[in-house]
């Protein structure tokens, strides 16, 4: 409860700062429910939790030409988990985006190329490290009501410290992961105030699953390390998987500068060795821009 109060206080402070100094472009608060936080397959390993996250964005954009825009943005976020407080973390992200518009007007397609680096500091120090992302997104609007996006991205994560190996022949760098994804999305306004969003993505690469000792996962894993965040005798395994990710959202636009969004996300992973897990995430997100 104290952590939640701290986060809300931080959000309030950020809003005050934004309204008085104009330093912050956007603040947000999100409540997230995850029914399989550990990305586990067996009932005994599956754990659920709720997360409260607050975030603030700032940035500077420069219109290089009529068609090209560069934006440097910074985002700070803090997340608190109700049960598994080892996952509490703060993240500082810097991103550089170049957007090129192929023509004039709101319906001209646009291509955005983005690179970012995030510093992740977890209460569980094994997860502390850096995350790097790069991607390209093509956007096309067809009307004031409908737009689509298609994107390809790459993600790389590196931990600061890697613990002792559980077995000499198996790596312990479970949180050093990489993956790439292809995503398609569509947004459609149902009414002038309600926006429906849907996206489907396929990720290929590493996932981390935390379970009790598990021979099939052990045999399929690329790295293993103890993971006491989820309790004693739990191990985090890095697996190579194909993950399908379906997201649906309904946003209520609140004036020109805020929205309240309810989201559903289904994650379905299939790893080598016939290992599969499924997670459902529910989100309630409030965003306010300045």
């Amino acid at each position: 409860m104290i952590r939640v109060r701290t986060l809300l206080l931080a959000l309030w402070a950020m809003q005050c700062l934004a309204s008085h100094a104009g330093l912050i472009d956007q603040v947000g608060v999100e409540l997230r429910l995850d029914d399989n936080l550990a990305r586990a397959e067996l009932d005994g390993d599956i754990t659920s939790d709720s997360t409260l996250e607050v975030s603030a964005d700032a940035g500077a954009g420069y219109q290089v030409s009529d068609s090209d825009r560069l934006k440097l943005s910074f985002e700070l976020s803090a997340s608190a988990f109700r049960r598994y407080d080892g996952l509490d973390h703060v993240a500082a992200r810097v991103a550089l985006t170049h957007r090129h518009k192929f023509g004039l007007g709101a319906y001209a397609p646009a291509l955005a190329l983005a690179v970012s680096a995030s510093r992740l500091i977890y209460r569980d120090s094994a997860r502390t490290g850096w995350q790097y992302e790069a991607g390209a997104t093509l956007h096309k609007r067809f009307s004031p009501r409908v737009d689509i996006q298609a994107g390809y991205g790459f993600q790389l994560r590196r931990s600061d410290d890697v613990g002792e190996r559980v077995l000499p022949q198996i790596a312990a760098d479970v949180f050093d992961t990489s993956s790439r994804h292809l995503r398609l999305g569509i947004n459609a306004m149902l009414t002038p105030s309600y926006l429906l969003g849907a996206s489907y993505a396929i990720h290929k690469g590493d996932i981390v699953s935390t379970t009790l000792r598990n021979l099939p996962i052990f045999l399929a894993s690329d790295a293993i390390a103890p993971d006491e965040v989820f309790g004693p005798d739990r191990f985090a395994y890095t697996l190579t998987a194909m993950t399908r990710d379906l997201q649906l959202s309904l946003s209520r636009l609140i004036g020109a500068d805020a929205s309240m969004t309810f989201g559903y996300q289904l994650i379905d992973s299939n790893a080598e060795g016939g290992i599969a897990y499924r997670s459902i995430l529910l989100r309630a997100t409030y965003l306010q821009q300045f």
């Binding site: 969003g197 959202s249 995430l281």
Partner: peptide
């Protein structure tokens, strides 16, 4: 006709996991 306009308000991106 309904007042459909291109939204200005922020909405969440397609978050990762």
């Amino acid at each position: 006709t309904p007042d459909f306009r291109i939204p200005r308000a922020p909405v969440p991106g397609q978050a990762g996991y």
